[in-house]
Design a protein around this nucleic acid. Sequence first.
DNA 1: TGATTATTTTACTGATTGGTATCTTATGTA
DNA 2: TACATAAGATACCAATCAGTAAAATAATCA
Lengths: 196, 196
Amino acid sequence: MGRHREFDPDEALHIALQVFRRRGYEGTSISDLTEAMGITRPSLYAAFGNKEDLFRRTLDLYERQHLCFAHEALQAPTARTAVERLLRGYVDVLTDPMSPPGCLGVNGAVACSEASESIREELIARRMVNENNLRDRLEKARSDGDFPSDEDPADWARYVVSVGLGMAVRAASGTSREELQRVVDVAMRSWPTAPR
Amino acid sequence: MGRHREFDPDEALHIALQVFRRRGYEGTSISDLTEAMGITRPSLYAAFGNKEDLFRRTLDLYERQHLCFAHEALQAPTARTAVERLLRGYVDVLTDPMSPPGCLGVNGAVACSEASESIREELIARRMVNENNLRDRLEKARSDGDFPSDEDPADWARYVVSVGLGMAVRAASGTSREELQRVVDVAMRSWPTAPR
DNA sequence: TGATTATTTTACTGATTGGTATCTTATGTA
DNA sequence: TACATAAGATACCAATCAGTAAAATAATCA
């Protein structure tokens, strides 16, 4: 019972995602959010808790909606195609014409004031999950004979994620989709051939 | 004539560099700066103008003091060694134990509020200068027969800078010097062999 | 209809932001 | 010593920050 909400929380969350992705966590003010969402401050706080809670919920939405391709990419038949799909799919996300360029997980907070350290750490932790998933995939590939036994999956996962992070910074700086795809072209040239 | 300054502006600038490098442009408040520098607000404004002016001066200092290795690296005999020195030297800067991890040019501002857009753009422009310098070096290498004629120097410069940016984000996230050197190891494996 | 409950609206809080006006103190020059 | 000048100290500015108290409104349930 009680009065009904006059806005769609899910729609509002999508808008928050756009704003946070463009301005980062600290660069976004509550006023930026309420203005874009078309709701008042108390409505925002009632629906989403506080700024930190809202940001974490946009992170969940972002991973669910934009980074979901990564899970499928990792299931590609070979490690090489998995990594290539990972990087090319990420480029598409970074330069999605419907969203601000760049990645919420990077734009969110690279450096910030002490007050937002917990957000920064959350982002670091979430990135590490992705890197570990990739490392696990490469370890499996090594067992399958699809990845050289004298190469370290952790080293390659770290490299691939680093290239991704670099492209994320560049996308936010205006580098085009085509240019980023050429970064992937070059990055993939180092990929090791399977052992014979 | 008049009263003498009781603080060393150069020393104060070095302290500002440390603070900005750790917290970024927007994550650093004037109070953070004056507290770390041990001076009062009016002294800061009298000596350095405003926050933006101060930040640009710390950028100049940073490039002069920490990124100066890049100029020498580019003068290495071959393109390959130039790039490797570039990347390894950058790793050393990113993980300098005397400074906060990461790069001022990246930590400074990846995403920010509208009020700081000009700073963000300044950082993008300065990064582009470095990339263009590297591209020019690779073009020279191609003329010298030190780089394949069927490879695009711009593509490779973009790739190398992307790897650097990715490592910068990772350094700020706590990735160790040793792990970043292994990223360089892998990144260099894609380097093209000189034409015969 | 009347009571209850949840939401919207309006106005506000204390803290912090970047930036300054003003007064005092210290210095070199006449 | 008197004056001019520049720096430090104190206290302040308006604007903005994240967050909320309280009243008004709209819905369901009895």
